[in-house]
Nucleic acid binder design. Structure first.
Lengths: 265, 265
DNA sequence: GAGTGGTCTAGACCACTGT
DNA sequence: CAGTGGTCTAGACCACTCC
């Protein structure tokens, strides 16, 4: 089993990390040190470290060194928020203004968050047209939301939300970002045009961050994004909203509980 | 905004992929071609391609070339399987033998699958001890399951399942892998020692594959794994089973439906 | 055998971090 | 300033695929 030199080096360092010889926070041997110890060139030393970086085991800081990553604190996200959000849409305006979905998640105050919304229109791609069961090219309202922590630059999510334009155009307030953050959220927005959501489907996949996500959300190599496609179906069985939500995979945990029926009663 | 040469090259290629100039399946310019076109060295050309590979946009095959990745077919996994699995535990033995959970997922015959089970014991780590609410070091039964397609080498999942040893030791058949695949699955196994599962919690995160997962599941750079921690709670509110399930992020979609209560009735 | 990606050497210079 | 990682050059040879 003849392995590449850089894989041998990476394997050796990986072993030291796994056994705890190199604890989280510890500095790895520097490039020059690795070159000397293992008698390899810069390229090989760097390739070895790069592999560990892409596995998410270590991170590098220019001018300082490469360090072992520890486990990260995660934000928990459960579907109970959906029920909470829907109920909130019927609250008084004062109450709706006072609360926000993001804060519920994180226990953070609104002031700590950098909230950003952007509205635009878009023709339905094949993918979206199929999901909404409308013809390709049908006009959609696209809304982009970004939330990130002001304090650290721990981003929380990047959301792309779609609505069928014709379905909500009767309320012009819904067509611009000027009213964001809308008190009461999407459920209340839909409420103003007579739509009630019956159920929400979460479809979850994962992949490496795109170049844009890496830039916007500040994700490093060695992390993944959880892609959550959230589909809202109204009480008339129409698909009324679709959100593609990108969440940092190392700082998020999605939690779903399934209640089973009893064998005997 | 002075970017590194390799990032410029990668950005250019990325652009061509996004616009469709380089369609899925198309061959990228070769290393030598890139070196010439952009007047860069091998290192830079390779670094550019490596970046795209780690973003999952392209894949390379030695001796052939580098190609644009298309979307992959995904296996859908819903929590309905849990209800189905539980119900199956009460079926006749003949019926239980005839069916299996994996097949339900994929519509594949048992013969197409390479099923592998391995049993062992383990002392509870801090992480697991907290989850099970037992002291650290408590004896656990660890079961490892691997399923992969025999035809392609499309792996399906890598499962690490834990049970508290004392909770199931009264039935010695449960302690060895000799009886796997057990007709009726874990629910029936627990049934033999008088345990009924009440609810199941799925906790979902994502990360790049570890070195081992990459080897065992055949995952390439540019893919993520979805980590699903499945916790089973019995009708007496005891944590009875915990599974850490690694799923290929590019071939899996987890789907959860949340039913909301009506505003008015 | 020609063409491809994979690995590797032995250097060099730059940018950033700390003292 | 010294020490670190980040980028880059200009080569070389190997391993694999396909004809």
């Amino acid at each position: 089993m003849p392995r590449a030199r850089y894989e041998t080096v990476a394997g050796d360092l990986r072993e030291q990390i796994k056994t705890g010889d190199l604890a989280p926070g510890t500095k790895l041997p520097g490039e020059r040190e690795i070159m000397e110890q293992y008698r390899v060139s810069v390229t090989v030393a760097r390739a070895a470290v790069a592999q560990l970086r892409h596995e998410g085991l270590v991170y590098s800081q220019q001018g300082k060194g490469t360090f072992v990553r520890g486990p990260r604190q995660r934000v928990r996200r459960t579907p109970e928020r959906y029920q909470w959000e829907k109920a909130r849409a019927l609250a008084t305006e004062e109450e709706r203004i006072r609360t926000g979905a993001v804060e519920q998640d994180t226990g953070l105050k609104f002031e700590d968050l950098d909230f950003h919304a952007e509205y635009g229109t878009e023709s339905a791609s094949k993918d979206l047209a199929e999901a909404f069961e409308v013809p390709v090219g049908c006009l959609l309202l696209r809304r982009t939301y970004r939330t990130r922590l002001r304090t650290e630059d721990s981003p929380l999510s990047l959301i792309q939300s779609y609505l069928v334009y014709d379905m909500i155009k009767e309320n012009p307030d819904l067509l611009t970002a000027d009213n964001e953050p809308w008190p009461g959220g999407t459920h209340h927005q839909l409420f103003t045009v007579g739509i009630e959501v019956d159920r929400i489907i979460d479809d979850i996949t994962a992949r490496p961050p795109t170049h844009e996500e890496a830039e916007v959300l500040g994700l490093e190599p060695g992390t993944s994004v959880i892609m959550l496609r959230k589909t809202s179906i109204d009480i008339n069985n129409r698909m009324v909203e679709l959100s593609d939500i990108a969440l940092p995979g190392d700082r998020t945990v999605l939690s779903y509980t399934t209640q089973l029926t009893r064998w005997s009663s």
